[in-house]
Nucleic acid binder design. Sequence first.
DNA 1: AGCAAAATACGATTTTATTCGTAAAACAAT
DNA 2: ATTGTTTTACGAATAAAATCGTATTTTGCT
Lengths: 127, 127
Amino acid sequence: MVSSKYIKPTESELEILRILWERNKASVRDVHEELSKTKEAGYTTTLKLMQIMFEKGLVGRDDSFKTHVYHPVVSREKTQKQLLGKMITNLFGGSSTELVIHALGNHKASPEELEEIQQLLNNLKKQ
Amino acid sequence: MVSSKYIKPTESELEILRILWERNKASVRDVHEELSKTKEAGYTTTLKLMQIMFEKGLVGRDDSFKTHVYHPVVSREKTQKQLLGKMITNLFGGSSTELVIHALGNHKASPEELEEIQQLLNNLKKQ
DNA sequence: AGCAAAATACGATTTTATTCGTAAAACAAT
DNA sequence: ATTGTTTTACGAATAAAATCGTATTTTGCT
């Protein structure tokens, strides 16, 4: 166990990871174009960020083509778990239930999704 | 509408806010002692942080006593909502349901809490 | 080969956050 | 009033994050 594994992505890095998680692979340009939809930033800024993420080991890349192709290394699940934990502690006084209620309250969920949650809830109740 | 109102608290500021939300009021020393339980930091560091938060308008203070007494200005709810939103977007691909499932899955909830969630779920289903 | 376009490398600057030392002020107790 | 303790004010150092300009490299095309 050498590592590590607890590199906490910064805000900007998360935005980039989001895109990589979605697409599995993407070039700097791909990412930058997607980012530009919601954010103001120069191309080299995105590039630099992704290079730094590469150095940190947050992402990997294939440089056998002209254009480097990046992919996520840290998993979405681990990152979710890590950050959720912090959020629950600092923001919801340790109560995951409170977080659930907030999340459900503030955002729309489809009937299918509600059903999915119902299933999960049923399972939890049984135990 | 002068403001503003979207000052995003930093990590350290959140830790302090957490304590203030819990207690409603607290001196720097109170906060610092609480913080010290889980974190290494000098007293003046905590002081400075709280002074900065005061300047930013995140907290208020009563300085009519010897020891200043601080209180939160930004509400827990607004801050929760703000940060949850970001988290859902970047970490859960926009799906609040996924977040709910994660939160429910990773942390224990009591029967009472489960019931509370069930209620909420019932309400949502009706609509 | 020679040129233009697109991409990367890299250094530097700027901005924001965090940490802390030192000094001044406020107060309490004798 | 003097002294010691606690607190605040403030400036500065450090560290971390984000931004960007410029140079170089790679590649595709004629």
